[in-house]
Design a binder for these strands. Structure first.
Lengths: 145, 145
DNA sequence: CTTGACTCCGTACCTATGTACGGAGCATAC
DNA sequence: GTATGCTCCGTACATAGGTACGGAGTCAAG
């Protein structure tokens, strides 16, 4: 079944502009433009976009995904395995960083809820002074929430 | 002690351009330009930039931080408490999402390491097909690693 | 054969947080 | 009094992943 770009986009649950963006980024081939009429897309293109979207939900960026899509041959698994492992480590680091942020925030929230000096906010105090006690010193840089 | 912008930046461990950026963003006031000579900064400006940087490591963005810096009066704690609590929830959501990504990646890596059909990569297979079994369906959208 | 919807294409814009550049003014050291 | 380095200011660029716009071509229905 041949599709126009709008129907491809709909089937893949993305916008038309996103399809074009993937084409510009080299993730998706642009079909030949016929002498008359519109470019035609296939179900394989739908699958390819879905692949991209699924890989994105696992934290792969479009560069990674381009690599994954390029893979061919009997050694594929070596490459994907390494890529997935690398990503896994990144995710674990990120989780650790966020956990240390969470601990710091929890501490602040609790302090705020317990009795404290009138007119002095412990959260502001803790941001205004350079203690670095507890969790804040270790991992929590580059949060990017 | 009065500082030039470069010495302010150095004391606060940021770049000069970052100081200017914070000024443009309204996080830091620009001192009056004297009739002759350069603008003068104080230690309070150093503290303010450090405040910003510390708040950033906790996941607050510059808009949040602008709010925090604006606060004044006896009800401060209500606002900071709410902001911190909201941020805490966001961080917890983010952690959960990343954990589900981690689980999915771990599963893939393990599959890749165990025996599997020759010439077929389980990672690619799992991205190419729409099972959504296990972890992938729940939280893992909007990864932003 | 006109109308409305869709495609095609290039380009500009968006978020957030900076970074970099370039020319002119100013200050301090020699 | 000049060389060097700093300040000041506006502007452009960078990232990642899209999103939007505008004008021209094309297609299908009535």
């Amino acid at each position: 079944m041949k599709l126009t770009i709008a129907r491809l986009a709909q089937a893949a649950e993305v916008g038309v502009e996103t399809v074009r963006f993937y084409q510009r980024s080299g993730l998706l081939a642009e079909p030949e433009k016929p002498a008359t009429g519109y470019r035609e897309y296939s179900h394989a293109d739908v699958q390819r976009i879905r692949f991209i979207k699924r890989a994105q939900t696992l934290g792969f960026n479009l560069d990674n995904i381009a690599d994954l899509l390029e893979l061919d041959g009997p050694q594929i698994c070596d490459v994907t395995h390494e890529l997935a492992l690398k990503k896994l480590h990144l995710v674990e680091e990120k989780i650790a960083a966020l956990q240390s942020i969470r601990d710091a925030l929890q501490g602040m929230v609790l302090q705020c809820e317990s009795k404290h000096e009138r007119g002095v906010c412990p959260i502001i105090q803790s941001l205004a002074t350079d203690e670095a006690k507890g969790s804040r010193k270790k991992a929590a840089s580059s949060a990017a929430l």
